[in-house]
Amino acid sequence: MIPLREPATARPGTTFHRMLERIRYEGAYSTRERAEEVTRAVLAALGRQLTGEERSDLAACLPAEAALVLTGQSPDPRPLTGWGFVKDLATRTGGTPATARWDTGAVLAAVADLAGPDLLDRVLARLPSGYALLFGRAELIQAA
């Protein structure tokens, strides 16, 4: 059987170190260790929300260390909206919602770049409302 589409794969040369350096720069984190801590927390939270082919395809776009964090989580049976995602992350990390929103934006901007627009469209279609802004995109709402 021939697959209808090729699964996404990590961009050549994309290492976990490079991903962390981008997140460190985007998030203005003072150390690589802080960027890694934030990255792991956000990817774990995303791994609890994302299911299906989109989860495995997204993992294939990420460096191995990041993919393991994303897929190492059991999906949460209660899907969270984008704002719920941020509040849950703040609770789990002991931070504020504002800090969690900042951290989420820094990490998910890098993830969106690695995923590319087609896969990101599919990921956003799988998640509840409110995630587009977290990935650095406008939230499109269909008219009733």
Rank of each mutant, 00 (worst) to 15 (best):
residue 9 T to I: 13
residue 102 W to M: 12
residue 89 L to W: 07
residue 5 R to W: 12
residue 92 R to Y: 08
residue 113 D to E: 06
residue 92 R to A: 13
residue 98 A to F: 07
residue 107 V to P: 14
residue 95 G to Y: 03
residue 139 E to C: 00
residue 100 A to K: 10
residue 100 A to Q: 10
residue 21 E to D: 15
residue 72 G to P: 10
residue 73 Q to T: 04
residue 27 G to Y: 09
residue 74 S to Q: 03
residue 22 R to V: 15
residue 15 T to W: 02
residue 38 V to R: 12
residue 31 T to V: 14
residue 19 M to I: 04
residue 32 R to N: 15
residue 101 R to T: 06
residue 41 A to T: 08
residue 21 E to Y: 08
residue 69 V to T: 10
residue 40 R to N: 13
residue 22 R to K: 14
residue 19 M to V: 07
residue 92 R to P: 14
residue 14 T to N: 14
residue 82 G to R: 05
residue 70 L to S: 06
residue 142 Q to I: 08
residue 132 A to D: 07
residue 122 R to E: 13
residue 96 T to H: 13
residue 100 A to N: 07
residue 57 D to R: 00
residue 93 T to I: 10
residue 60 A to H: 01
residue 58 L to C: 13
residue 132 A to M: 01
residue 20 L to F: 11
residue 97 P to L: 15
residue 1 M to P: 14
residue 67 A to T: 03
residue 81 T to V: 03
residue 49 Q to I: 04
residue 80 L to M: 15
residue 43 L to P: 14
residue 111 V to C: 02
residue 113 D to F: 03
residue 117 P to N: 04
residue 127 L to K: 02
residue 78 R to G: 09
residue 32 R to H: 14
residue 95 G to S: 15
residue 33 E to H: 09
residue 114 L to V: 06
residue 6 E to D: 10
residue 57 D to M: 04
residue 1 M to F: 10
residue 139 E to I: 00
residue 105 G to M: 08
residue 98 A to Q: 14
residue 99 T to E: 13
residue 81 T to E: 11
residue 18 R to N: 15
residue 132 A to R: 02
residue 101 R to E: 10
